[in-house]
C-alpha cells in the first residue's frame, strides 16, 4: 500500500476559493432578487446574459489563449458577471452588457493573469468603460415595468442626478426611510440598501470579509458630507443622502471589499476605505460626474500595492 507523504499540515480548514465565491454569490442574491422584482424580465435577462458572457469569455480565454486548465470552476466569473449587471442601468441593451463583460473579463482580469492578479476590480473597469463610451445608455434611468410598480419613480436621472436640477436642499428631501427599501432610479443592484446590507452582514457572519473597509468608507462619506453640509446646506447634500445614493452601499459592501483589489492588512484597509470615501465625496461635490463611486474605488485599487507595502501585520516579538 502506497501511503501519502507530505509536509505538514495534514488537515485543511476545508475552505476554498469556490466556497468563498459561492458565499459572495449568495450575499448578492437579496439585492439581485429585489432588482428582479422592480425591473422585471429585462433585468433578469441582463443578469443572465452578463453572467453567461463572463463565464464563457473566461472559459474561452483560458482554453484558447492561455492554454491552461479552465478557472471558471472557482465561480469568480459569476461574481464579476453579477456585479457588472448590478452596476448597469436596468435598460441597458444586451450588446452593451456584452462589451462590458469583454472589458471586465478579457481586459481587466485575464490580461493580468486571471483571478488574484488583476489590479482593478474587473466589474468596475467594465462599468467605467461603458460609462465613458456609451454615456447615453449608461445614464438612461427609465424604469422598465417590473413585478412591483413603483409610485415615486423618476425617469431621466438618478437621485444624485437631481442635485444640479433641484438644488441640494430639495434633493436631500427626496431621501427618506423609504429609500432604504427601494431607491428606484440608479444602477439595477442598488435599488434596495437593505438587501445589500443584508448580503454584507451575511459575508461578515460567514467570515468571508472583515468590516473595516466598508465601515471606513461609510464613516468617511458621512463625515465629509456632514462637514460640508454644515458649512453650506444649499450647496452640499447631507450625509444620509450621500450614503444611500449613487452606489456607495453596493460599492462599499461588494466592490471595495473584493479580495484581489483591496489591501490585506486591517490598517491598510482602513486607509483604503478613507481614500475611497474622500475621493467619492470630492467627485460628487466638485467633479463633473454625479456619482463617482466607481472612480473612487478604481483609484484606490491602484494604491493597494503601496498600502500593502506600507501596512504589515503586527509581528510577534517585534515592536
Amino acid at each position: 500500500m502506497a501511503y501519502i507523504v507530505s509536509p505538514n499540515p495534514h488537515i485543511h480548514a476545508a475552505v476554498s476559493t469556490k466556497k468563498l465565491m459561492l458565499d459572495v454569490i449568495i450575499a448578492l442574491c437579496p439585492a439581485a432578487i429585489v432588482s428582479f422584482l422592480f425591473y422585471g424580465l429585462s433585468e433578469i435577462a441582463i443578469m443572465a446574459f452578463s453572467v453567461a458572457s463572463c463565464v464563457v469569455l473566461e472559459w474561452a480565454i483560458t482554453k484558447y489563449m492561455l492554454k491552461r486548465p479552465s478557472s471558471t470552476g472557482d465561480l469568480s466569473a459569476i461574481v464579476t458577471g453579477m456585479l457588472l449587471a448590478m452596476n448597469l442601468p436596468p435598460t441597458c441593451p444586451l450588446w452593451v452588457v456584452f462589451i462590458g463583460a469583454v472589458v471586465a473579463i478579457a481586459i481587466a482580469k485575464m490580461t493580468f493573469g486571471g483571478i488574484g492578479q488583476n489590479i482593478w476590480n474587473p466589474a468596475l473597469v467594465g462599468r467605467v468603460f461603458l460609462l465613458v463610451s456609451f454615456p447615453t445608455y449608461m445614464t438612461d434611468w427609465t424604469v422598465p415595468a417590473g413585478f412591483i410598480s413603483s409610485v415615486d419613480a423618476f425617469s431621466g436621472a438618478t437621485l444624485l442626478g437631481q442635485v444640479p436640477i433641484l438644488g441640494a436642499l430639495e434633493a436631500d428631501k427626496l431621501v427618506s426611510l423609504q429609500t432604504l427599501f427601494h431607491n428606484v432610479g440608479g444602477s439595477a443592484g442598488e435599488i434596495s440598501a437593505l438587501a445589500l446590507l443584508a448580503g454584507w452582514v451575511y459575508l461578515l457572519v460567514r467570515k468571508v470579509i472583515k468590516p473595516w473597509i466598508t465601515l471606513s468608507i461609510f464613516a468617511t462619506v458621512a463625515l465629509v458630507a456632514l462637514v460640508f453640509h454644515a458649512v453650506d446646506p444649499a450647496q452640499y447634500t447631507g450625509p444620509l443622502f450621500n450614503l444611500l445614493t449613487g452606489g456607495v452601499i453596493l460599492g462599499a459592501c461588494f466592490m471595495a471589499t473584493d479580495y484581489v483589489t483591496s489591501p490585506m492588512g486591517t490598517w491598510g484597509g482602513v486607509i483604503y476605505g478613507i481614500g475611497i470615501g474622500f475621493i467619492v465625496m470630492m467627485i460628487r461635490y466638485f467633479g463633473s460626474y454625479p456619482e463617482g463611486m466607481s472612480f473612487a474605488i478604481l483609484l484606490m485599487n491602484t494604491a493597494v500595492p503601496l498600502l500593502d507595502m506600507k501596512f504589515h501585520h503586527r509581528k510577534y516579538g517585534r515592536k
Binding site: 488537515i11 485543511h12 476559493t17 469568480s76 479580495y259 484581489v260 490585506m264
Partner: peptide
C-alpha cells in the same frame, strides 16, 4: 488529508 488542487492566490 490529500491536498486540494492548487490555484492562484486570490489575496484574501
Amino acid at each position: 488529508t490529500r491536498r486540494g488542487q492548487e490555484s492562484l492566490c486570490i489575496r484574501c
